[in-house]
Write a protein that binds this DNA or RNA. Structure first.
Lengths: 143, 143
DNA sequence: TCTTACATAATAATGGTTATAAACAGTATA
DNA sequence: TATACTGTTTATAACCATTATTATGTAAGA
């Protein structure tokens, strides 16, 4: 199945001097097809069949490249390692504190938050991030 | 100058089996007097005159103790080290993508977000987190 | 005083991330 | 083509925030 957002991302890289390589394509493809927010190591492991010789540094380097190109967002949840998210779809997540399950969740109209922040802090605002934490139905039953 | 919130925090620790030590008092005092959101290392360095023999581990251990007691919040952002915030009352942060500067930012009425998430995901919602990202005035001038 | 539980300090270990250097590959220009 | 140039990958070492370990110290209770 084709992924339109991936195509768009690849296209937008062509306008920069960032070269497309097999490794980069695979990392991007994995990220855009991925439902969750993988860590760099998870990406690395997911691609080691396809690229047995790929270095971890390559994953990190390219994630940074994509981040700087605005295609990918880095999220830190307080556990040891960063997670990465293809930055295209604007939705939020509800996260279970117990089992880590992530449920998508649409909520409109936080543009005003950005506008207000821009005003009170004199920042040029680029984006925002929001998550809701709680206990999922399954974990609630266990207790 | 006295700090009412610090007193309150010290008081609330008495009801637990957490012992008050000079190091703990100093860490708490520094955090509550601090305008910014220091890292563990910044706290460590700020107190090394007063406690030349204090271990970094002591700072980390006690920050965890305070966190578990609900007195301190740990903020994990993209940069390498965690930051700690004594202001546990609900506020949000605007973060500079370039230099990491953090500015506090009050915004009312995201309770409805929790309510909606609770409804659509059937979670029992406990909390939420939001941050706004952009470029601070200083970094904007540099470019 | 003896015992127990909690704290600190010093140090080592862990592990995610980044820096370095050498080999490699695509691109442009002559 | 040949050559130079720039960007990329790989492998490895280094870095650094955080945690684990262990020995020592200290407060509180019986």
């Amino acid at each position: 199945m084709e992924n339109a957002e991936l195509k768009e991302a690849l296209q937008s890289l062509k306008s920069t001097k960032v070269r497309m390589t097999p490794q980069r394509h695979a990392i991007l493809e994995f990220l855009f097809d991925c439902e969750s927010h993988p860590t760099a190591d998870e990406i690395y492991k997911a691609l080691e069949d396809k690229f047995p010789n790929m270095s971890v540094a390559t994953v990190y380097n390219n994630l940074r490249v994509f981040k700087e190109a605005g295609l990918v967002r880095e999220l830190t949840y307080g556990d040891s390692s960063s997670r990465f998210d293809s930055n295209t779809s604007h939705h939020y997540h509800v996260i279970c504190d117990d089992c880590g399950k992530i449920v998508d969740f649409h909520y409109p109209g936080l543009n005003e938050v950005e506008a207000l922040a821009e005003h009170v802090a004199s920042f040029r605002v680029r984006s925002h991030r929001m998550e809701v934490y709680g206990t999922c139905p399954d974990c609630r039953q266990k207790h």
